[in-house]
Amino acid sequence: MKFPSFEYACPASLADAVALLSEEGDAMVLAGGQSLMPILAFRLAAPRLLVDLKNVPGLDTIKISAEDVRLGARVRWCDIEKHTGLSAAQPLLAEAISHVAHYQIRNRGTVGGSIALADPAAEMPGIAVTCDAEIALTGKLGERVVPAAKFFLGAMETCIQPDEIITEVRLPLWPSDRCWAFKEFARRRGDFALAGVAVFYDVDANGCAANTHIGVIGASDRPCRLGSAEQIINGAFLDATVIEAAAEAASNEIEPMEDHHAPADYRCALVKTLLERALTRAMA
């Protein structure tokens, strides 16, 4: 499985990278390459040009501020794993990313690459959607910022234009007393999950849940929030009955894909189980 023939460019600035993408209509962006290279090896894509971002400055930083957490597009899974501040500033992210792939892949695979690939079972897009993240893109017309909820259009499908490059993922401020959990189920360690759920909520003055966010991966063609389950949690005092009701609602709300890894009804049951376990964990 040898790669198809392509040209390779390694621009030194974002502007140059965008210009290369604009000039060569049949180009793809290369960051860590951990998804792109298998795609090329199977010849599922055969671009004329690969634009490597490795020399583009500023894309590999993790910035934690009073307003948000900003992950540069070239931030790798191992960077998130080793970062000392993220487990406090964005614990849901840190937990979810600990499930991504394997050691060697984690040394190369990037936030931007995962967002751009838009695998429905991938953790990073799921966290972006769950957390109301914004995705910053730069193209020939300048920068635009797209809410994660509008970014993913389907399996392996996003709103990125051919001349655009993801530069940053912005995750909103995370209150330190927030309740949260991440649960996924994969066949083996590091595999894409058959399904996963990310959950957080805040506790109001009455001890009830508010601002509930429940995201699911692997259960439809793109990561999504589960509004019916969120509604049941919001304003409720969490107990086993509420959790059961929310999990049931989640299971009814999703319309999972069916493939050789798992039938649809199994995925429905799995999401229910995972959400029960996540909510139980979140309130503990």
Partner: peptide, 28 residues
């Protein structure tokens, strides 16, 4: 527990990569 060469009705192999054909790994 893991390994299965799955075909569809057209006789196409659906588990044609090592991400789909699940071999035991060190964690299992």
């Amino acid at each position: 527990l893991l390994e299965h060469l799955v075909y569809d009705k057209e006789g196409q192999l659906l588990t044609g990569t090592l991400a789909d054909y699940l071999l035991p790994t060190a964690g299992d």
